[in-house]
Design a protein around this nucleic acid. Sequence first.
DNA 1: GTAGGTGCAAACCTTTTGCAGCATG
DNA 2: CATGCTGCAAAAGGTTTGCACCTAC
Lengths: 154, 154
Amino acid sequence: MKLDQEQQVVEAALRRRGFRWTNQRAAIVRTALQSHEHFTAEELLALCRRIDPKVSRATVYRTLAVLEEAGFVEGLDTGDGGRRFEHVLGHDHHDHMVCLGCGSIFEFRDDELERRQEVAAKRIGFRIERHSLRIHGRCRDCQRAQKGGDRVSG
Amino acid sequence: MKLDQEQQVVEAALRRRGFRWTNQRAAIVRTALQSHEHFTAEELLALCRRIDPKVSRATVYRTLAVLEEAGFVEGLDTGDGGRRFEHVLGHDHHDHMVCLGCGSIFEFRDDELERRQEVAAKRIGFRIERHSLRIHGRCRDCQRAQKGGDRVSG
DNA sequence: GTAGGTGCAAACCTTTTGCAGCATG
DNA sequence: CATGCTGCAAAAGGTTTGCACCTAC
C-alpha cells in the first residue's frame, strides 16, 4: 500500500468518525505515515512544518491523540518521561527491545507472547486496549564493546 | 523478613556503595518498604512527612533514583506521563496491567511469557537486563461502568 | 451558519538543578 | 572538618487547556 492510499484510509476513517479533515491533519497524517522511525511529538511537529509552517504544537498533540484513539498510531514510553510514536498502518503489532548501550530499537513479534497476555487478562476480567513490552538490555554489538567494563557508580 | 531487617539490608547496601545514611533516607526507605502499593513520588513524599515533616521533594526524587539504581525499587510508567514505584525486596518479578479507567494496577506473572522473551532476545543476540510489560486497558469494574458509552468525540 | 478545529500562550505536572547551609563519617 | 546531602525555589521538559478566531461541512 502506498502513501496516498494509506492517507486516504486514515482520512476516510476519521471522517467516518465525524472528524473534519483539515490541512493540518493531512500534513500530520502524511508526515507520520512517511516516517518509518519512532518519532517524538516535537520531531513530528518539525517535520510537519516543512509541509505547512504554521501547524501548531497543540494541533500535533491533539491530532496524535485522535490518531492513537483511532488506532493508526501507537505511543511508547521511552522510560525517561518522554514518548515516541509510530504509525501502525501496514505494520503488524510488535514489541521493542531497547539497547541501553546505543539506544537502538529492535522490533520483534511473537504470537505466543500476545496470546499469553490475553490469557492472563481474561483470567481477571481485564480488557486489553494496548500494551507495551519494552525489553532493555544490550544489543550484540554493545555486548562486545562492553566486555570487561562494569560500572559501579556514576 | 520483617521491616527492620529489610531496612538494614538497604542501609548496608547503600553504605557499601559509599552513600551516607541520613534521617531522610531512613524515612524514605522505611516508608517505601512499608508500602505494598505502587506509589508515586508525591505520595511517598506525603507519607515520609508523617515520619519527618521536613523531608523535601527533591530528596525523595534523589533517593528514589539511588534506590532504583541499587535495585531496591522499580519504577513503572503509568502511560499518562507519570511514574509509580514499588519496592522489590522479597517480591518475585511480575508484570502489570494498568486500568485506564480507575488507575488500578494488577500484578501477574507468567513463566512462559518470560521464557518467550528470552527466546526472542537470543534470536537476535540481545542480552536482556530488564524488561517492563505493561498492559493498559479496562478492569472488570470499569468495563461495566463504561457499557453503552462509546465515545465518538470529546 | 455552526460546530469543530486551530494557534497562541499560559497553565500544568512531574522531575531536575543551582546554591547556600547542614550533618554524616 | 570535608564532602556529600538537604531544602528551597526556580527551571526544565513534555503535554494540556482557555480563548478568540477561523474553516470545513
